[in-house]
Amino acid sequence: MDRRKFLGLGMVALALVPATSLHALDFRKEKPDTWTAQTVDDAIKALYGATATESKDITLKAPKVASNGGAIPVTIKTSIDAKTVAMFQDANPESAVAVWTVPEGGIVNYTTKIKMKKSGTITVIVEDKAGKLHSVKQTLEVALGGCEG
C-alpha cells in the first residue's frame, strides 16, 4: 500500500477509537496534519498556524555529535510561561517528534530520548500563554542512524 495512504488510514482509525476521558488534549487527534508533515515549517504551520521568532529564553540541550541515533537525549528548558512545547527535526521522514501540553503552573524542564535517521537540526517551539511562538534550533551530527535503516 502507498505509504501516504497508509498513514492517512491510520489517522482515520485513530479518530474512530473512542476518546477516553483520560485525554485532556491529544495533539494527534487535535492536529493530525502535524504528524504527517514532512518539513519542519509545514509541521509548525499545521500545529500552530503561525511562524515563530527565535528566542534566547529557551535552552535546548542535545549532544553535538550523537554516536547512537536511536537514543539521543534532548533536554528543553524555558523561563517563558508556556502553554505548549513542541519538538521537530528534519532528519526523519516526518518532522514532528513530540508536543507537550504544559499544565497550569507547570515547570518546563523536559528530557526525553529521540531517534534520528541522520544528521540534522532539532527545532523546538514554545508557545506562550498569549499564543506567541518562540523557537530555538540545534544542529547535530548523527554517527549511526537510529531508525533501523
Binding site: 485532556a24 488534549l25 537514543a71 516526518e94 508536543v99 501540553t101 503552573g105 526525553t112 531517534k115
Partner: peptide, 22 residues
C-alpha cells in the same frame, strides 16, 4: 495533570521521560 505529551514514532525505544512539577 502534571505532565502531558503527544508523541510520534521518533521517540527512542523504551522512551525516557524526565520532568519536574510543583
Amino acid at each position: 495533570v502534571v505532565y502531558e505529551l503527544s508523541s510520534s514514532q521518533f521517540l527512542a525505544k523504551d522512551p525516557l521521560f524526565k520532568f519536574e512539577f510543583k
